Amino acid sequence: MTSCRPETVAFTATAPLRVTATREIIAGPDRIFAALADASSWPRWFPGLDQARWTSPEPHGMGSTREVKVGPLRVVEEFIAWEPGVRFGFTFESTNLPGTRAGVELVELLPVTAHRTRVSYTMALEPVGLPARLAPPLKPVMRAAIGRGLAGLDRYLAQGA
């Protein structure tokens, strides 16, 4: 694992590689946030994510850490945004993803009605070396992957989770 440069939420507006997917989900923001905060649920609704587990003790919030595995890739995350019903975000502490200098993921929840929420998921990265040169064609792939994750979250919550 290689250490990453810690970043703030502001990185989502300045990172060299940024992608956002948005979906309206039939659930209130508090219910969506609860699903996001349940690390063990992520593999059930985010395709390709094999494991997500807290590496810091409860209660979880700002400064908490989590490890995520997607196939052979691993990321250790530190939470930099934790506002129940509003936003959920983390910076990369370390990863084995080649050529990743920094990363932030941010999920923002905007109520549309009492039972509908617009969910915006942004992934912001600073790739270096070959990954930086490959970044432009990867944007649609990354956006589609995040979109599948949001669709999975929608289905998961519709099933009563």
Rank of each mutant, 00 (worst) to 15 (best):
T100C: 13
P127H: 13
C4E: 05
R143D: 08
G99C: 07
R143I: 10
F90W: 13
G129D: 10
F88R: 02
P111K: 06
L36F: 09
R66C: 11
I25A: 03
G63I: 01
G147N: 14
L138E: 08
L130Q: 10
S64D: 05
P59Y: 03
S41Q: 05
W42D: 02
P16S: 11
R148H: 15
L17P: 00
L17Y: 15
R118Y: 07
M142K: 00
V19S: 04
V128R: 14
A135L: 11
L125M: 15
R18F: 05
P140W: 11
A13V: 07
E7A: 15
I32C: 03
R18Q: 10
T122N: 08
L110A: 14
M123T: 14
R5N: 13
E105G: 13
F92P: 00
T65E: 14
V128C: 09
G61C: 05
A35R: 03
R44E: 15
S3M: 12
A52E: 02
V70N: 03
L134C: 12
A52D: 06
G48S: 03
T22S: 14
W42R: 01
A21G: 04
A144W: 15
H60F: 02
L73T: 12
A102K: 06
M142S: 13
V128W: 11
R148F: 14
R101Q: 15
L109S: 08
V119D: 09
A102Y: 08
V112A: 13
E77A: 02
G71F: 05
V112W: 00
L49T: 03
R133W: 15
V128D: 10
P6Y: 03
F46W: 13
F11V: 06
A114F: 09
G103F: 07
G149N: 12
M142T: 15
D38P: 00
A161R: 14
V119M: 08
A151C: 00
G152C: 12
L138H: 08
L36A: 04
L153E: 08
S94Q: 09
F33T: 01
V141H: 08
V70P: 00
T20W: 05
L49G: 02
R66Q: 15
Q159L: 14
R143N: 10
I32T: 02
P137M: 10
T2W: 06
V76R: 14
T100P: 00
